[in-house]
Design a protein around this nucleic acid. Sequence first.
DNA 1: TCGATTGTCTAGCGGTGCTAGAATCCGGAT
DNA 2: ATCCGGATTCTAGCACCGCTAGACAATCGA
Lengths: 192, 192
Amino acid sequence: MSVQERKQRERADRERLIVATARELAEQQGWDAVTTRRLAERIEYSQPVLYSHFRGKREIIGAVALQGATELATAVRTATTTATNPRARVTALARTYLDFAATHPAVYDAIFQLDGGLPYAQDNTPEPLKDAFAALQETLTTVAGHNTHPGLFTEVFWAALHGIATLTREGRLPPEDTQQRLDLIVDRLAVL
Amino acid sequence: MSVQERKQRERADRERLIVATARELAEQQGWDAVTTRRLAERIEYSQPVLYSHFRGKREIIGAVALQGATELATAVRTATTTATNPRARVTALARTYLDFAATHPAVYDAIFQLDGGLPYAQDNTPEPLKDAFAALQETLTTVAGHNTHPGLFTEVFWAALHGIATLTREGRLPPEDTQQRLDLIVDRLAVL
DNA sequence: TCGATTGTCTAGCGGTGCTAGAATCCGGAT
DNA sequence: ATCCGGATTCTAGCACCGCTAGACAATCGA
């Protein structure tokens, strides 16, 4: 039986290699540059091998999205737990979120912009996505205000951050005033 | 000279036809379905004709974006001027914006998501885009608060709306609670 | 009516995501 | 040690994409 186990292990390794390579290529040259041919060449296998692991390019994007969501959740939790008061926590959350979007634009796109074939905001939403939302909600619940549903508040706060992140990255908003925008959002939205 | 004038007129007509057809096709089947072949077939000319009007597909998207921005500006101004008090004006603005995004998703994408080759947030930004932002700012300035720069406030309010619009359309947010999210944004962000 | 210019089309380039079927490798039984 | 059979991987190709060179047709001015 050990032979089969080794094969399974090698297969899992190769799958991780595919996802890591896709992500790397996307961060280096954008998702448009992530073609099945280039990806296959980089992992030193032929194209059809990709399709023995994933249904198609879409699913590879989805895999990157799940990985990214886990990291985003971790980053947010790390940043919020080190802060000492509510206001600092929310500011840290917002800054971490926008930092993540700015430093990993391709991963951010995989999670929030591209079609990775993942179900969102549903019962069968994958755990990493739910958990990323939960990471936001944990902190934001504390500043939602008494008459406001925490989930709804989190959605709105998140949407505001998402708007700033995407509009800034696509050149719709000048990047200089990001900090001031962040302050304004925290000041107005959070009930302290 | 009248022959040349007629030709120019016909050329302009055809250009409008191209933009209108691209827009129609995008709204019906999404931008992915707007291929140069399909577009050429619908306007009953061959592919190269498109390239005598536009540098490429990107510029066609840009043309739709400019048209859409003009309409969005008009819609926002119409909605805000009929309202009687500041709070009603801001609510009308937000609702109109989200309505526009929901009912013309392809046009909204052309303006705010896709690459139409247009310069944003710069001196040479096309007038329709500047004007759409101006339309938002006209109303939002009145509720920015005294210590807040109107431009910055407009950007943040806009980003929040944009976040809700895009996350909702891509299924990241359930569409049912849009009205409550809208109310929350107006309540918290606007200084009345 | 002719020549030149303008306009349009056919055909094709290199690229995309994806897949059928051939070729190869390799573990396990003899 | 050898061979068989199944799993694995590759070659080659599909239909489509954006875009363009060069052939062809239509039209205008002389």
